[in-house]
Every structure is written in C-alpha cells, then in structure tokens.
Write a protein that binds this DNA or RNA. Sequence first.
RNA 1: GGCUGGGUGGCAGAGUGGUCAUGCAGCGGCCUGCAAAGCCGUCAACGGCGGUUCGAUUCCGCCCUCAGCCUCCA
Length: 461
Amino acid sequence: MLNIYNSLTNQKEEFKPIVPGQVSMYVCGMTVYDFCHIGHARVLVVFDVVYRYLQHLGYDVNYVRNITDIDDKIINRANERGEDFYRLTQRFIDAMHEDADALGVLRPTKEPRATDSIGIMLKMIAELVSNGHAYQAPNGDVYFSVAKYKDYGQLSGKKIDELRSGERVEVDTQKNDPLDFVLWKSAKPGEPSWPSDYGDGRPGWHIECSAMSTQMLGNHFDIHGGGQDLQFPHHENEIAQSECCTGEKFVNYWMHNGFVRVNEEKMSKSLGNFFTLRDVSKDFKAEEIRYFILSSHYRSQLNYSEDQLNNARSALKRFYGALLGAEICEPLSNTDYQKRFEAALNDDFNTANAVAVLFDLVRDINRAKTEDSATVNALASLLKYLGGIIGLLQSDAESYLKGQVGDYSGLNDDKVDDLIKQRLDARDNRDWALADRIRDELTAARIVLEDGVGGTRWRRG
RNA sequence: GGCUGGGUGGCAGAGUGGUCAUGCAGCGGCCUGCAAAGCCGUCAACGGCGGUUCGAUUCCGCCCUCAGCCUCCA
C-alpha cells in the first residue's frame, strides 16, 4: 500500500487513484532559458522515481511535465543575446533532454510547451472573466480576483488577510487588489505576442499549468508535483484558477520536493550559487549525481558538496563491485529484500531507506562470492532488478568501473592491460619491486588494481 | 511578523516508545608477496528545559537554533 505525503493536508495519506489502475500526474517542468542545474536535476529525478515506481506497482501512468517557453526571463535573455526567443528556448529544451537522458530520467508521457497551448489558456481566461473571477484592467492586462475565491490559501496555509497585511509588493494600481495575479499580459512593443479578445499579449505563468494539466489529464487528476518553492504562489494560484474555471476539485495529491542547498543556502539562479549539470558532469558520472539525489528523502533538503558526490561515487563502486562477474538472470521473486525495498518506497518514496536495503543485499552477495556462484547470480540479479525500479545500477558493471570521467591521465584501456601484463610477469618472477613500481605508475593514473584468484582486475578510481 | 519543514554518532543520512538503520571514515582481525577489494568484529548519536510513561531520541509544552515561502525561482 502506497502512502504519499500530501502538501495539501500536510500528512501522509494512502494513495487511491481516481480511476482504479490508472494515475494522472502533472509536474511543473523547466523554464527554458538556461542550462539545468542540480536543483532542476532533483525535480527530474525525484518525479522520475515516482513515475517508475507507480508503473512498477502496475499502474498505467499518464505523466505530463510541461515546458515553460515564454516568460519575462526568456524574453530578456533572448533580447540580451539578440536571438529569437523561440530559437533560444529550443536550444535549451534540447539541452534539457540531453541532461535528463544522461541522468536516466524517462521521458514523460507528454511534454507540452506553453506556446503550443495558448488557445486553451485563452479559453480558460474567457471562462474566468465571464463567470466573474477575472477582470481586464485599464492597461489591458487580465487579472484573477483572489478575494472572490474563498478557499484561497488552502495549499500554502496562508490566509488572505495575513497576506494582505504582510504585503511587500508595491501596489500596482492596475489591480483591484494587490493580491490579484495576472492571467494575460498585454504585449509591449517588440515582445512576442498572441492575438486575443483582450488585445495582443502573452499568458501569465500560472495559467499555463492550469490549462495544460486539465487539458491533458482532465479537470480533476491524481498527482501534481514540483519544487517546494512553487507551492506558493504558483500552485496556490493554479488551484484557484482551475477550480474557479471548472467548478471541480483540481488535484488530490500535491507533492513538493525539497531544495538543493549550497553552504546552507538554497541553490538558485537568483542567488547565483548554482552548479549546472554540465559543470558537475565534468567530474562526476551522471549516475553518481542521480545516486546523490536519491540518497536522501525527496522532501528533505539536500546539501550539495563535492564530498557528497564522492560519497555517491564510493557507494556506486560498492554496488557495481558486487555486481561484477555475476551473471544476470531472472531475479528471485518474493524475497524479503524486495518486500523491505518496496515497503521503503511505499512509505512516501523513501529512497534513502530503499538504498539501505540494497546495501544489505550487497553484503549477502559478497559473502556468497566465496561459496557458490548460483547464489551470487541470483542475488546480483535481484540487486540489479531492484536498483532498476529507482533507475540505478543498469550499466554493465565492468564498463561502469572502468569508465572514466573528467581529466584522467592519458592511459587508455589497452595501455592499462599492457602494464598489468608486465606486472604479472614481474610477479611471476617474484620481482616485487618492479611489480610495485608498475602498480604505482597505474595508481598515479588513477587506476586501481585488485589481485584476485581469477587474475588481476582494474578500475578507474 | 505569518506560514512550512528541520535540528540524530567524525561526516552523510533513515527510523523507532524499551533489540542492528545504512554508507563513508576510524580501530582490531582474516585474506594478500605487499596492497586493493571483500569478509568478520568494534567504537560512537539522538539541540536545551520541563511534562506524560515502568521506560522517550521517538508523544506533549516551552525555549534556542537552522532552512524555506510570503517577490521571479525546481
């Protein structure tokens, strides 16, 4: 039985889909004006695990993750570069796909772009205007009337009165109420725009998610996810717009992942303390980054540091070390390991706990290695199968361990094999000094040797 | 100021009203020509003060403290 922590009620609840056997899930994706950083990677990976695990449980999952490809930042960036905004966003969409693929993130079922959905947004806006929940201001902008939605604040726990008293935004005289938010922005000269009954303009940020999610998943769907920073105002506003427009409940389960932090501070574009995936990938394998993300619970904060990534590196070496030499076959079914593993994931996707189960399995594999290979193969296959449920351990063990990343010395695999052969000769002659000298040479090139009964193995350290 | 969520052993990070988390690091041993890897053993923690309880790191209250949101942000 799967339990999910619901941000709407602030407690874990048993997951029950609206339609038995099917899950409809929407996750707020990237605004594509720059490369993805580790914080973005966390959303991608966290909800990839949710997606994979729901499928593992046998659900037919309709997973929609949007792309915001029109907003102020995109326009500004395009202007700075003198590049057409559509070309700019296309470039970063391609980059995002490359990054996500590398991390082992499965493509969502659908990945709508905001600019392809303007029509449906305008329909929603028209409905909100006609039913009195929205109005057009003198300057042409269309705003949503927060005060007219009595349940506003249900997700973030905020109260309209308190928001108003803590108001820090300068009052926009165009709005009837400072809390109102924009649905349609009228275009300034030279900005990308779309025609509408309210004049040329572009959509506000919040309406796109309401439009694309309800269009693709229905007015009422199961799961909506995103980063914690979207809880307010973005998700709160989505609820308000959607429910005022459709008259139905919008979403049953809200999921929010915690931030990645750098030196006790949120990693964010505005603080400038972010590390892009591309930067980090110069020194670490994508799977190490994925493991790092999954080594803590998705709702807790995650501190980014090189030590943490090194820790992930050690962990994966241990996993792949256990897998090395085993023959992968049909995994054992109904094992205690699988039960514990699933119990962990059933508990609000507790990947940290699930990974701990995998380490117990590793110990059993390594123990069995001195005894019989059938047990090793069976347990290793189970390890690989369970790892696959959270998108880990799917590489070939030997190539993973020999794989290189970043600036290693120029020693290629053939040269390594050659040196190892020379060292073996030296060892046969009991010339330990020479053997050790060769090993030192390899060590300097970050090659680690392991002399075993079956010969000498090596890996890149 | 309002609202969230935290404070666990050297580090990271789960969890529980009374027996082991787990990984890395450390220490002792086995294995090895020596290593490495692996295995066995081992050390060690629950922010502070009260309360409930036979017993609390785990429940309750207060305090201290950290992060996040309240403005764009995954």
